[in-house]
């Protein structure tokens, strides 16, 4: 292909990627080193507010932002270096907690609490999603051709449900007097409150994510199984390989590129865990890094939002994903080079 033709084909998507991925990313990166503040003046005013019977009036000195002639708030933006990152990570307190071996003190810093959960969540769900996806794919591949269609359809259903809705449904099933909690109470004879302590909520979150994403892994692996070379498998059977040995030495190596692909996608997705925290209302017990960014960005009643700290938190989340992906990316890069 001539370079001009190539460029003409690639240019539109490059342009969109620059516009919607690179530009916002750069802007967040830059914002994370700056703080924008309104100029505040102290003004003495009398304010009267409604009581039920009588008005309450008070004269006080209030902090009020300064407005310019167009009615816009006057702001100043200044470079603060790594201050925003320090405010999120709290290296001084984290270091003190680490050197005193005080796990609880470390977990009382929001960022470290979120990082602990995000990593646990990502690393525990990964093998479960890959394993369960592979198991379903093998099972479906071995069922009768006539019922394969319906089975595939049913297995895919969890993946079709919108994540927040799925999380909410699980919550409603297990909350205080949800039907599944009631059933477990009747069966075990003890009172069960799934949302009263952190570890049960965490279990539900893990369960929900595996239930939701395993169908994705299944579809990819099932497609991979269709390209399996029958003769290799039959040769292995002639050589007396057991079912497990065939899986271990023939099927898994064949599917390896797909397993890497599914792992890559899942790592990126799971590290951005967010819907579960909102859906299960888990923020008292567990929070994730993505939720932390969202919480900083969410304005309070008076309209304040911590954009700079949110940018720092978002950049830290991205750095975390990149670190997690490096080993897998290096492996596929080596395979790619090897194949050439």
């Amino acid at each position: 292909m001539r370079f001009r033709t190539f460029a003409a084909f690639v240019a539109p998507s490059l342009l969109l990627m620059v516009l919607f991925i690179a530009a916002p990313l750069t802007s967040v990166f830059v914002q994370s080193f700056f703080v924008t503040q309104p100029q505040i003046q102290r003004v003495e005013t009398e304010r009267c507010t409604a009581g039920f019977l009588e008005q309450q009036c008070t004269t006080e000195i209030k902090n009020v932002p300064v407005l310019d002639e167009n009615g816009a708030v006057v702001t100043t933006t200044r470079f603060v270096g790594l201050d925003n990152y320090r405010a999120v990570v709290r290296p001084d307190r984290a270091f003190a907690a680490l050197s005193a071996w005080d796990w609880q003190a470390l977990m009382s810093i929001d960022f470290w609490k979120a990082l602990r959960f995000t990593l646990t969540f990502t690393l525990v769900t990964l093998p479960l999603v890959v394993g369960l996806g592979l198991a379903i794919a093998l099972a479906v591949n071995n069922t009768m051709r006539s019922i394969r269609g319906p089975v595939i359809f049913v297995s895919l259903l969890p993946f079709i449900v919108t994540p927040v809705i799925g999380a909410l449904s699980i919550r409603w099933l297990f909350v205080g007097d949800g039907i599944l909690t009631r059933a477990m109470e009747a069966w075990s004879g003890t009172e069960i409150a799934m949302f009263a302590q952190g570890w049960t909520i965490e279990l539900l979150m893990l369960f929900y994510r595996v239930w939701h994403v395993a169908p994705f892994a299944f579809v990819i692996f099932y497609a991979g199984l269709q390209t399996m070379n029958r003769e290799t498998l039959e040769a292995a059977m002639v050589d007396g390989a057991s079912r497990f040995e065939r899986l271990r030495y023939v099927i898994v190596p064949h599917l390896m590129p797909l397993i890497v692909f599914v792992s890559l996608i899942h790592l990126m997705d799971a590290y951005r865990v967010f819907e579960e925290v909102v859906g299960f209302r888990s923020q008292a017990h567990v929070i994730s890094l993505q939720w932390l960014t969202y919480d900083l960005l969410q304005p309070d009643d008076a309209g304040n939002r911590a954009v700079s700290r949110a940018s720092a938190s978002a950049m830290l989340t991205m750095i975390g994903i990149v670190i997690l992906l490096v080993p897998l990316l290096r492996k596929s890069w080596r395979d790619h080079k090897g194949a050439r």
Binding site: R47, T49, A50, G51, Q56, K62, N63, P65, D110, Q283, A284, H285, D295, D300, D301, A302, G303, N304
Partner: peptide, 20 residues
């Protein structure tokens, strides 16, 4: 009365995030 100030929003969020 719930105070009508910018500070109150920050107080409310800080307490909400930390006391759980």
């Amino acid at each position: 009365s719930y105070p009508m100030t910018i500070e109150m929003g920050l107080i409310h969020s800080a307490i909400g995030n930390q006391i759980s």
